[in-house]
């Protein structure tokens, strides 16, 4: 009896040791091998799916897209403002709510005095949109990094990340951001939507995206396209000294909105 117990304990001890060692070896093997194999299997970089977001200051944009708006062309043809607004809003499924409190606007026409803080004998209505500032206060204030500067220098919003806190709406000194108080689909005709582009949902902030999706397809922004005959709007890379926009800026006197705030807008006006 005694002998049997001794043998049993021996076997139990050895097998416990073997088991523990085996687990340790197996764990090491698994942890060493799995990331590489899963990456090879899926072809998807690990971690990317968890939507890592880079700090807007981490990467310096190689480009900085800007816009020059020639107000005299708009004065010659006052219908251009309406054309730009409808082209932009139909392209991006921007809802139309009659109540000004619910209104969502990517571009709009406002009084010269409100736009520039001074009076002008020559102009009444000015086309305004997101200035895609080089130093944007909205990006600084966004707590979720939903709004950021992309590679083209465009101040973009990731609607997947926007929590609707509206800090950016408060931060933008130009008032160029709109909050979706209502479900935007209530203000859209579902039959005439641009089905290549999404709508937004209630509770996110939206602004002009400089037609990033059109630029990606090699097209010009909708506002440029619709005013191309009058050549009222020119877009280009402000970081490229030889671009058309820089030649215009070098040879013509232009104006930015509220330049003293230090936001350095990328939208310029020929007054």
């Amino acid at each position: 009896m005694d002998k049997k117990r001794r043998e049993f304990l021996k076997i139990a001890g050895v097998s416990t040791l073997a088991g523990l060692g085996g687990i340790a070896v197996a764990e090491r093997f698994v942890s060493g091998a799995s990331p590489a194999s899963s990456r090879a299997e899926t072809g998807v970089e690990p971690g990317l799916g968890s939507s890592q977001v880079t700090n807007p200051k981490d990467t310096t944009p190689t480009k900085r897209l800007g816009m020059v708006i020639d107000l005299s062309r708009f004065k010659n043809d006052p219908s251009l403002v309406g054309k730009v607004i409808s082209a932009c809003h139909t392209n991006h499924n921007v809802p139309n709510f009659p109540d000004e409190e619910d209104a969502v606007k990517w571009v709009s026409g406002i009084d010269y005095e409100i736009a520039f803080g001074e009076q002008s004998p020559d102009y009444t209505e000015v086309l305004v949109l997101c200035n895609h500032c080089d130093n944007p206060p909205c990006v600084e204030d966004c707590p979720t990094r939903a709004t950021f500067i992309d590679n083209n220098g465009i101040v973009a919003i990731d609607y997947h990340r926007c929590i609707g806190c509206r800090f950016c709406v408060a931060a933008c000194p130009y008032g160029m951001r709109s909050f979706n108080w209502r479900d935007p689909r209530e203000g859209l005709d579902m039959n005439t939507l641009n089905r290549e582009f999404p709508t937004r949902r209630r509770g996110v902030v939206e602004n002009c995206n400089f037609c990033a999706e059109r630029l990606g397809r090699g097209q010009m922004p909708a506002c440029v396209e619709v005013t191309s005959e009058a050549r009222a709007i020119v877009v280009g890379d402000l970081n490229d000294p030889n671009s058309e926009i820089n030649i215009i800026l070098g040879s013509t006197e232009t104006k930015q909105r509220m330049p003293l705030l230090g936001t350095n807008p990328s939208v310029f006006y020929i007054v």
Binding site: L48, F148, D158, H160, G216
Partner: peptide, 27 residues
């Protein structure tokens, strides 16, 4: 991707696409 993989991983793939297109501008 093959159907079995798509069934399991389509949501990650869509997130990667979203970040590519929107964040890194890789269209």
């Amino acid at each position: 991707l093959p159907a079995e993989q798509m069934r399991v991983e389509h949501m990650q793939l869509l997130n990667v696409w979203r970040d590519d297109v929107l964040r890194t501008g890789d269209r």
